Amino acid sequence: MNHIEKQLLTAPRNHLYLSFIAAIVIGLFLWSLTAVNVSNIEEGGLAIARNILYGLTHPDTELLFNVSRQSVLFLLAETLAIAFLGTIVGAFLAVPLAFLAASNLVPKPVSWITRLLLIMIRTLPALVYGLMFIRVTGPGPFAGVLTVGLTSIGMLAKLYVDAIEELDKRVLESMTSVGCSTLDKIRFGVMPQLLSVFASVMIYRFDMNMREASILGLVGAGGIGAPLIFAMRGYKWDQVGSILIGLVVLILIIELLSNQLRAKLVKG
């Protein structure tokens, strides 16, 4: 038995505290069960559930594999383009905001105001931004790109700020001692330390934006969401199955590629 295991075994156990927490969790679980209502499940509902399962397991292969503008492949490509362009827009706009929000680079009032702006950006959900941009630009992929870009700014800037505030200050102090300007310090002292972190965060956000872009179609902001909801409302479960299969395969591929890229950036 090593030293760590001995310390673990000899550590005092607060059984009263653990029992209290367990009682709260069990109580909340039992209280949540009161909201479960199975009496509304009728025979018609079970039949619909069987139709949904059959449609998902027997997808419309023509819709899945043809190359028309209404096909799954085209809609997935449009969704991918919305997520990619939106991520690029959000990543570039988040950089100056992150530097303005970093308390170790700018005065406290400027940092506080910028952080407040970023909190306000993160407050509204993507669907609300999508509805607003549709009113401005009209329905279509462009509104989706603007929505994804704006919603990406809040999260990316926050993670950028965390990376900026963890910089090695000795590099900046040495550059200050030789008379470097603020721009020189950012260009030669800050950015080389941050590029890999920024790229890793941007890849992670792109993975999230793929899911958001697939939902934005529900409000008319382009992508695969609108055909999905129309197929569900029309009870065309074979079309729903083909759309979901294409979406799942695309997201799995992006997940694998993004994990590999982030791993290489961390090693680099």
Score class of each variant (00 low, 15 high):
Ile82Thr: 09
Ser242Gln: 11
Thr151Gln: 03
Arg69Cys: 03
Pro109Ile: 10
Ile251Pro: 08
Gly223Tyr: 02
Val240Ser: 04
Lys236Leu: 07
Cys180Trp: 05
Arg262Pro: 11
Phe133Asp: 05
Ser258Asn: 07
Pro139Gly: 13
Leu116Thr: 06
Ala35Arg: 14
Ile82Gln: 10
Leu53Lys: 06
Thr87Lys: 02
Ala11Thr: 04
Leu195Trp: 07
Gln239Ala: 13
Gly144Arg: 08
Ile121Trp: 04
Asn104Arg: 03
Asn51Arg: 12
Ala81Trp: 10
Leu167Phe: 08
Glu165Leu: 12
Thr79Val: 10
Ile41Pro: 08
Ile48Cys: 00
Met191Cys: 12
Met175Ser: 09
Thr176Ile: 09
Phe29Arg: 01
Pro96Gln: 06
Ala81Phe: 08
Ser200Tyr: 07
Pro227Ala: 01
Thr114Leu: 09
Ile251Trp: 03
Phe206Asp: 02
Thr114Gln: 09
Ile224Arg: 04
Leu250Cys: 11
Leu105Pro: 01
Leu33Asn: 12
Leu56Gln: 07
Val128Ser: 06
Glu165Phe: 10
Ala81Lys: 07
Asn51Trp: 01
Ala94Tyr: 02
Ile119Thr: 12
Leu76Arg: 00
Ser39Ile: 11
Asp162Cys: 03
Leu33Met: 15
Gly149Ser: 08
Gly225Phe: 04
Leu194Ser: 10
Ala102Asn: 08
Gly220Cys: 12
Leu244Ser: 07
Gly149Phe: 01
Leu195Cys: 09
Leu131Lys: 01
Lys185Thr: 06
Leu75His: 12
Gln7Pro: 00
Val190Asp: 01
Leu256Ala: 13
Trp237Leu: 03
His58Gly: 09
Asn37Met: 09
Gly130Cys: 08
Ile48Asn: 10
Cys180Met: 15
Leu97His: 04
Asn40Arg: 14
Ile253Ser: 05
Ile21Thr: 13
Val161His: 03
Leu131Cys: 03
Lys236His: 12
Val148Lys: 02
Ser214Cys: 05
Arg50Pro: 02
Ile134Tyr: 00
Arg187His: 09
Leu127Trp: 01
Leu76Val: 15
Asp184Gln: 15
Thr114Arg: 07
Trp112Ala: 14
Thr87Val: 03
Ile224Leu: 14
Asp207Pro: 06
Thr10Cys: 06
Met202Ala: 15
Ala98His: 02
Asn37Tyr: 12
Ile26Arg: 11
Lys158Tyr: 04
Pro96Arg: 06
Met202Trp: 10
Ser152Tyr: 02
Leu244Glu: 06
Leu256Gly: 05
Leu252Trp: 02
Val72Asn: 03
Tyr54Leu: 12
Gly45Tyr: 13
Thr182Met: 05
His3Thr: 10
Glu43His: 13
Ala221Val: 13
Val38Met: 14
Ile52Asp: 05
Thr176Ala: 07
Arg115Glu: 05
Gly220Asn: 05
Tyr160Phe: 15
Pro139Ile: 13
Val128Gly: 00
